[in-house]
Design a protein around this nucleic acid. Structure first.
Length: 438
RNA sequence: GGAGAGGUGCCAGAGUGGUCGAAUGGGUCUCACUGCUAAUGAGUUGACCUGGGAAACCGGGUCCGAGGGUUCAAAUCCCUCCCUCUCCGCCA
């Protein structure tokens, strides 16, 4: 959540910033009104409490000196104030709840560096990479010279080589659930080991739980606004995580870290579950959009000063994996209109799928400022000032496998219908060099 | 799932309904002593909300696992939930 003090003190800036996201600025005025009410009512409550407290102390003294009658008088007086207090408490509580709800609904303020725009079409392509041309600045991507046999969509390749079985996955779980088989399954496992090993120089490997409490989902900003998108286990009041960001961000919930511990770097491999409500029929063929997919996530807690550098590091790591896998990709600087709810700035990585002709989002690398840290109450004590401050959180996928799997089988398909395994993965899959029918 | 024990500050641990934000010990930091370290002595050491102040700081409120209740007053009594430990059952 954003800092209520900032809303009070720099209202215009907050309004302007949220307006760039398409948020109605009157919501800010409404919040300020709720804040005013909450503070007024809390003050009233605290005054009454102070009175009750001081009378209680008097009663204690009077009792000790044995003056029973005056104790009774005082008790009567306190009971009277007490009934006012009960009402004041209820009012203050509900005003504070309303303020909190309004605050939780507001998205983060975009960074000043985030391009202003109203939607997807305004995202800025900042650079791109192909195996042939390497890194290039700008937005005019020169695609590799794909052969006709690479223009086959991954779901056809997968069936042909019997490494992807979407029909039976549908039988088991329904549409938009994947099932990899044989070397297809091995390929996914290899990608996971490859990525985790790649991060092992600086990141602690974590295997977190994938079912989490409501409070955990609120911390990252996935609730209360996006209830529809999450799988919920009602009986146990748990949610299936949509990304490892959820448990990893809450790892240090309610803790005060030492500045010396920062930055904290973590990586985790988990399955991710998304209901994808409202996206039925749109780009859902094959592995393009799934209810369940696997992903390696990288995540960091930093001081505000370290955040910029860390954002670049996370992005660099995700890009490096794509380069090692030899996949053509482009980097998008998401505009204010397309930015995720909790993010201040996000770069998306899109890999090119020659079989479908689509750019597929395979990573999203975000800087959240202290938005999530406020919700999760993750703080650190500054070495110099000794002050306690909120950490900044950042994370990125490195990478999301189902779509990467798709792009790999299409990109590496040969004229004889086999799929060559990228060299970096071979050590992780028994040195198999290609997947073919024989 | 059943039975029992327990959750108190950075850690260990005491706590009679009122003088308890909380004994005591350890740790931390500061100072003194010491050639350095150690030892010793003195002091220090919570978070959050809110009002005042330029600030140092001062006032009020909250917090003893969480949420309710009883009471003039709750760490302390009652209820619900969560978590930890021990035993039994079940299980990969």
């Amino acid at each position: 959540m954003i800092d209520i003090r900032l809303v009070r003190e720099d209202t215009d800036k907050v309004k302007k910033s949220l307006q760039n996201r398409g948020v109605d600025p009157s919501l800010v005025d409404a919040l300020l009104q709720l804040d005013f009410e909450a503070r007024t009512k809390a003050t009233r409550r605290d005054e009454l409490r102070a009175q009750v407290n001081s009378i209680s102390k008097e009663i204690a003294q009077v009792m000790r000196s044995g003056m029973k009658d005056s104790a009774e008088t005082l008790k009567e007086k306190s009971r009277e104030i007490g009934s006012q207090l009960t009402a004041a408490e209820a009012e203050a509580l509900s005003a504070e709840d309303r303020r909190r709800e309004a605050l939780l609904e507001l998205p983060n303020l975009p960074s000043d560096d985030t391009p202003v725009g109203s939607g997807e079409q305004d995202n800025v392509i900042v650079r791109w990479w192909t195996p042939e041309l390497g890194m290039q600045e700008g937005s005019e991507v020169v695609l590799p010279d794909y052969q006709e046999y690479q223009r086959k969509p991954h779901w056809e390749i997968g069936s042909e080589l019997r490494i992807l079985d979407l029909e039976r996955a549908a039988k088991i779980s329904g549409s938009m659930f994947p099932m990899f088989r044989g070397l297809g399954a091995t390929l996914e496992r290899a990608l996971t080991s490859f990525a985790l090993d790649a991060h092992s120089d600086a990141f602690e490997e974590i295997r977190p739980p994938t079912l989490v409490r409501t409070a955990t989902m609120i911390s990252t900003g996935h609730l209360p606004k996006f209830e529809e998108d999450a799988y919920r286990l009602e009986r146990d009041d748990l949610y299936a995580i949509p990304t490892a960001e959820v448990p990893l961000t809450s790892l240090a919930k309610d803790e005060i870290l030492s500045e010396q511990d920062l930055p904290v770097r973590m990586t985790a491999f988990t399955s991710c579950f998304r209901r994808e409500a409202g996206s039925a029929g749109r780009d859902t063929r094959g592995l393009l959009r799934l209810h369940e997919f696997d992903k390696v996530e990288i995540l960091a807690y930093t001081t505000p000063d370290q955040a910029g550098e860390m954002h670049a590091e996370l992005l660099g790591r995700a890009e490096r994996l794509l380069q090692q896998l030899g996949l053509t990709y482009r980097v998008l600087d998401l505009c204010t209109g397309d930015l995720g709810n909790s993010s201040k700035r996000t770069f998306d990585l899109e890999a090119y799928s020659p079989g479908t002709g689509l750019w597929l989002e395979v990573s999203s690398v975000s800087w959240f400022g202290d938005f999530q840290a406020r919700r999760a109450n993750i703080r650190y004590r500054a070495l110099e000032s000794k002050e306690i401050e909120f950490v900044h959180t950042l994370n990125g996928s490195a990478l999301a496998w189902a779509r990467i799997w798709a792009v790999i089988v299409e990109t590496y398909r040969k004229s004889d219908s086999s799929v060559v395994i990228p060299e970096v993965l071979r050590p992780y899959m028994r040195n198999v060099e290609k997947i073919s029918l024989d």
